[in-house]
Design a protein around this nucleic acid. Sequence first.
DNA 1: ACACCCATGTAAGGTGTTACATGATTAG
DNA 2: CTAATCATGTAACACCTTACATGGGTGT
Lengths: 212, 212
Amino acid sequence: MNHKQEGTCFVLELAVLGLLKETPMSGYELKKQLSVKLGAFWRVSYGSLYPCLKRLAAAGDLEVEVSPFTSRKKHVYRLTDKGNRLFHQLLETADGHELEQDRFSMRLAFFRYLRPEARLYQLERRRGYLQERLADLRASVRTARERMDAYTIELMDHGLDEREREIAWLDRLIARERRSTEAQPEQNPAEPLSPAQLPQSPRDPRLPAQTG
Amino acid sequence: MNHKQEGTCFVLELAVLGLLKETPMSGYELKKQLSVKLGAFWRVSYGSLYPCLKRLAAAGDLEVEVSPFTSRKKHVYRLTDKGNRLFHQLLETADGHELEQDRFSMRLAFFRYLRPEARLYQLERRRGYLQERLADLRASVRTARERMDAYTIELMDHGLDEREREIAWLDRLIARERRSTEAQPEQNPAEPLSPAQLPQSPRDPRLPAQTG
DNA sequence: ACACCCATGTAAGGTGTTACATGATTAG
DNA sequence: CTAATCATGTAACACCTTACATGGGTGT
């Protein structure tokens, strides 16, 4: 009845496609690379990774080759054109949870594959989201501070501080992005073949309202 | 074969028992209170909450009373002695994931129910854990910085900063805890119902090794 | 001979959310 | 009357980890 796309929320698939975009690899190698490159904020187990690779290969997003260089079985996965399109789609798509910490971090890790306007758009949206969370927290602190014990107060204050810092950080990223966008209008389309273009027109950022 | 305790990891249970300890409530009310008191770092859906209440009631950790004050059915849950013991057990137990962000925050929110030494112990352990994560991150930045793009570097640096700040915050909490411990040795055993105050205890910190 | 990394995979279980189903009461 | 809020619950699905099962290669 209600047409859900086709399953998962694709943080894992994004990570996998993103790394395989650079270098074809086996599942085992991939896991190691994932923990080197993204391990700071995210990790997977084989129990997720291997089935994911199978799914993607079955869907034609990856090509498998059983490596001839070792006598033991070793599946080397390579990104197909279809897989590359999927990657860009996942990187740009809003799935309703795309602003949450882990999802956003994962996208940010692949920001270089986005066009500058798309980057700016995503940064602004994340900023707006955090601003809302911040407002929520402030509101709940205002109404309940009297009834809170010292530890809860510490928890709240620390949470406020963390969110404020994250917003400030985003502001720096946004400012930098804008500077480089304005400095060289219309230059690097993030990838020579511009595989997945946003359906947007050249100008008019049309950014989401800012709470602050 | 290998005797796992009895199921879940009990973040939800801890939250539920912790709030019901203060006031008996229905599931509906409970959800609202949870979002007011713990919503800053955690949330639940009814789909988790109601089954959890049933489980706890079935196990004898909660007593149910169908409220006579409203004509519509309304189950008011009250903590039993058994439930209170479970609460304290969950609050002190190390389950192998007890140092992760959400788990730790949840415990911290109920710190006033712990003895001062137990508080100090948990704060130190969390600090050690964060210190390790920090070291990991630093190591991976050292080895890979050259090969990282600007956005990944930002992600890493932001992560480093966040962890450092969290450690500094813990240091403040630890220092305060120690001060109040030393200031007034041997007084209230963690639960004579004074709403917001940091209690205390004798000497012998006996703290776990510090990574830093 | 043994240990240890490489390499792939599956089954079971944990933990949670969303969407649905149901209905009473209250405020306008 | 109708909309909102109170109130409870279930089924399906999403997503992940752990523990197990299996076996080749490499070093000592």
